[in-house]
Design a protein around this nucleic acid. Sequence first.
DNA 1: CTCCAAACTGTGAGCGCTCCCAACTTCGTA
DNA 2: TACGAAGTTGGGAGCGCTCACAGTTTGGAG
Lengths: 337, 337
Amino acid sequence: MTEPSRLRSRPTMDDVAAMAGVSRGTVSRVLNGGHNVSRQALAAVERAISKTGYVVNQHARSLVTQRSGSVAFILSEPQDKLFEDPNFNNLLRGCTQVLAEHDITLLLTVAATAEDRQRIGRWVTAGHVDGALLVSNHLGSPLIAELKERGLPFVVCGRPLGQERDVTYVASDDRDGARQMTEYLRSTGRRRIAIITGPLDTPGGVDRLAGYREIAGAGDPYLVATGDYTQASGEAAMTRLLSQAPDLDAVFVCSDLMAAGAITALQRAGRRVPDDVAVGGFDDNRIATTTTPLLTTIRQPWARQSAEMVRLLLAHIDGAEHAAVILPTDLVVRDSA
Amino acid sequence: MTEPSRLRSRPTMDDVAAMAGVSRGTVSRVLNGGHNVSRQALAAVERAISKTGYVVNQHARSLVTQRSGSVAFILSEPQDKLFEDPNFNNLLRGCTQVLAEHDITLLLTVAATAEDRQRIGRWVTAGHVDGALLVSNHLGSPLIAELKERGLPFVVCGRPLGQERDVTYVASDDRDGARQMTEYLRSTGRRRIAIITGPLDTPGGVDRLAGYREIAGAGDPYLVATGDYTQASGEAAMTRLLSQAPDLDAVFVCSDLMAAGAITALQRAGRRVPDDVAVGGFDDNRIATTTTPLLTTIRQPWARQSAEMVRLLLAHIDGAEHAAVILPTDLVVRDSA
DNA sequence: CTCCAAACTGTGAGCGCTCCCAACTTCGTA
DNA sequence: TACGAAGTTGGGAGCGCTCACAGTTTGGAG
């Protein structure tokens, strides 16, 4: 490698101070809120800043403040998921927005492979970020352990299965939501209620299944199928269910995206929705209003979820204790059930 | 805000050096390749590193090296696009991978609003990253001008309309790809070839339209409709075209995702694909192999595209001159035309 | 007129690292 | 035996910033 031609070497605080005819300290004060600075000093500094095009060197600042002004949004999921599942979209949008209000930048990293997770773990703990938001963690995620050991503040989205101890997390009440939906299906007279669960190494997988079982009973294993939250997996699971239990009259699908797939499978099999088979989803994201018929589903409070995650993370960065927040869910009745 | 309880204060190089019984300089040498370090010093340092759990403080390092070891992937697009369009996925995956080989982390930022763009512009130029990959830039993107002024190395994906001067970019040969497709449709006997373009403030919008016109002529304005690269917009545009020009016998759709929408619209209108209307796409991403019938399309060399972008960015960071790379495209014939 | 608080300003120390240079060791060779 | 080259090591300087503290000014109260 040849000698790199650095960025056009940027002006420093000293340059600004010299031009404004004040000291470094005064420039620093202006940069950090402008308290205890006289009117004319402030004006002079601001003029010098815009004249020199000065931008604070974040590395130097971080070195002394021990703060970077950014947090990581770590998605532990193969990349396609990110692009298919609107839930991540909702979450990401919410977090970015709330963080922006605090003037903190959100860095999105996708940990698709174990190797990625390692690199990201190193990167995150090298001081690049003040904290992390962990999304979509499967059972036994090594990232949680690593961050915990490093003492990097983080908040997990969803219950971190088997690692709830000393971990801050925000989750929807998956179990209760599942209960609500199953109960509702039952209340409309359905008797053979199947379920398409999420992966059983995720909280959304196990907790929603548990909620379903509280109402539907442990019952018939032929009424249970598992998907991976993709539309294709919902379609496949539904097809399986239909062949295992042709007499089912309702299905609770643990995500809207999978529910869309399930509806496709049902219609291809000649079943009418909801006349022959009622379909209930989970999430209430944009998919729910694009299916035909419109999807009856459980609303997860996405906005509150992201707001809580950010709030807890910032609190945690400021030294607060661990906390777990469980948010309530609502039944949204549309046409599919 | 109360006094923050910083991270458990991390060990520094001096701690490691003390434990290993060597000097800071030697530890630094070990960290940076281990050249000119005796076997036993190296072993001692490595032992001390793992015993203390030392991780280099990136801010301190960056402060002196003027390098951060990360680059930004800036997507100037409303967030939903990111999640719907598989092209971004392809690009992102490719860039992450190639950068990882250089041990550089990729930071994804989504600049959905003008406000976001400002915040990101500030953030990027504050020295957080060594360079930026700009994706999906619309006409007159202010980000390009800002980065250029700041002297931050960057590479644009796609031709930066009206800002090609002194800007490094990598693009597919949109014009030629469009030409190939239109020519192919013509060669199969189609005579009323419509087009659904991308937004006309993007290179993919204008250049593909230009390529189409070279073959199809400026012709009938009723044969031209514009979408925004979403599936829904493809469907809507196709519906419009059908009512404007019911006798069309082929349509060149400037993205696979829109083509999927167009096929839906055609089938709903009772037209058979390709018998009544031939459909050609553009991109050749995973959508192309999930439509029925399978999509005949133009392959964009995604892997090469990302590899070239990264190569140029790294070169640029190392002081290389500006460059423009245009990559050739291929016609992929499947069933829809 | 004096004195003290409040407002403002400058300065040195130091964040944790890399880079450079001087110094020391070792060894093969004249 | 002496000497230079090559390999190895320590330590000072300094990256650009914040923070604490001391110093200066101002103005109102006593």
